[in-house]
Write a protein that binds this DNA or RNA. Sequence first.
DNA 1: CTGAAAGCGCTTACAG
DNA 2: CTGAAAGCGCTTACAG
Lengths: 339, 339
Amino acid sequence: MLFGVPREKSVRLSDVAAVAGVSLATASKALNGNTRISEATRERVRVAAERLDFRPDALARSFASGRSGTIGVLTHRAKNTFAQPVAMGAILQLGAQNQAALVYDGDVKESKAMSDSLRELRARRIDGLLVIGDGHEHTSPSLTHNFDVPVRYIFTASSDPNDVLYLPDNREAGRLATQHLLDTGNTRIAHLGGPQNSIAAERRLAGMTDALTAAGLEPVGPITRSDWTRVCGAASMAELLQSGAMFDAVFCGNDHIALGAMETCAAAGVRIPDDVALVGVDNWEGTVVDQDGSRQLTSVDLELMELGRLGAASMAAADHAPGEHFSTPTLAIGPSSRV
Amino acid sequence: MLFGVPREKSVRLSDVAAVAGVSLATASKALNGNTRISEATRERVRVAAERLDFRPDALARSFASGRSGTIGVLTHRAKNTFAQPVAMGAILQLGAQNQAALVYDGDVKESKAMSDSLRELRARRIDGLLVIGDGHEHTSPSLTHNFDVPVRYIFTASSDPNDVLYLPDNREAGRLATQHLLDTGNTRIAHLGGPQNSIAAERRLAGMTDALTAAGLEPVGPITRSDWTRVCGAASMAELLQSGAMFDAVFCGNDHIALGAMETCAAAGVRIPDDVALVGVDNWEGTVVDQDGSRQLTSVDLELMELGRLGAASMAAADHAPGEHFSTPTLAIGPSSRV
DNA sequence: CTGAAAGCGCTTACAG
DNA sequence: CTGAAAGCGCTTACAG
């Protein structure tokens, strides 16, 4: 009984009402604070509740009010590297709001299973729905009109432009990375980009351009394209070196590309950060931190847990603005850039 | 309305009863299957329910039955590298069982906050409790006696030997790694161990001994100790080489140690796996997979997601055996061992 | 095997 | 501002 939680039958609201000398209805209103109740009465009820250590039975309350205290969570592939922290952040935030999470993992596009899940969620009378994808390239079918409770789309696009989306701020990530390079004295900045058709890659580049433009500059050298891998990053850097462009820094589309670039630089005798400064994106522990625990790269963190957290928190707040909302990226400075 | 979920007011059990021509009570029993009901009646009710697409209101059901369909989850530090997949596995399994998860993250030892969380969980009338830690070295205070619903301890020890624990099978991990080395033709196997006082390290070594003993062998060379880092792993390997022991394989306490050992081998001109085969433990993506996506190490996977899944599933099953239960480690073969 | 009735513990119009 | 009463939609003894 370490935490002293008593196991006796719990106090009911009627007990509180009796002690406070008011009716059940009044006690309920006093505690829930919404209706007009004299401050004196309210206080009397509060004191009684406190003294009896009253905790309203959540089941009864839910049944009577129609609010379940449960949020439905539809994850696309919650196990995925990037989706997992987003989902975790959301679920932890729900807990902090005293909301339970009913999580169905699956392919949001398999309409059979999906349809079943939706039925179950309605039967559960969820207070809200979180649709969590595994990146901005992923589009979820809009479920908003299937529910009369708030629906949020996190780490995914949706098929309906009026939906409320929570996404990592890739543009700001690009801006932040580039601004850091500018702030540390670089003026000739190149870019090793992600895939041509990737929204994330486009936005990171757009953010870079934002920062450069504000400084009256332009990207240096060819904007290379690659999938997000180290091997391609190495090739991209080789291409950049070969182009003959003069540059003192490179904003890399992600950390893998940056690591590939480092390899090419090492082979070419280009010193980092003395000759060329490098910044990546993702700040993924396994990628960016060496096995001895030392950081090997400056990287922008998209704050994915925070992203999930924000999306979940937005159900409680009355923030219904449609469109895109962002978590704020942060900069993690390592030895690949000057200070 | 992509998934065709109707928004009209839902069918109640009384509607089903009316259609089936039975009483409300009979309809309830027929659907819930527990009481003695004639098969004919049961079928009639089923058909009616099916036809009306009846879904019982979970809130009413909970209120009437006292079962919330919600499981409390107390995580120690759910963000931690190893704790996260365990928690995620558990939560996904709960969802698959149609159980919501009310997750409170915090320090299980801060009795103030803990006491609050426990109150809330009781008020919620949870059907069970999952206490999730961040490793076997972590001990949770036993909460079992604070609840009259099942409590499971996952990825943590507990202060009460009668509790039900779900843990990674470190001993089997050691056995599996060693057996793999034996199976691929090695006979002189050394060990680079984790910290002296670590339960995980002890058990991995015990498992190694199991396998060797079964083969009529003994560990070769000094059993080195280190924290789990790459730097220490490198030092341990140096110590092993210097000892003059003749060995053809090394079971490393974890992947970091194995990677450190690889460095030392490379520097000493020892070829892997030709001269020495290496196996690690953890199979952590960021550690064991190179940034180009290629695996660089043979490693035992402790199956942490599966661990969480098993713990959560055990609430549904009537498996109340006290003591330790395990997830089964698997072997992921890479280029550091022969095939 | 079946049904009438009580009851789970709150919230919420409604009347005063 | 306060209270009596209905009601949320099921489940579960209990009686038949």
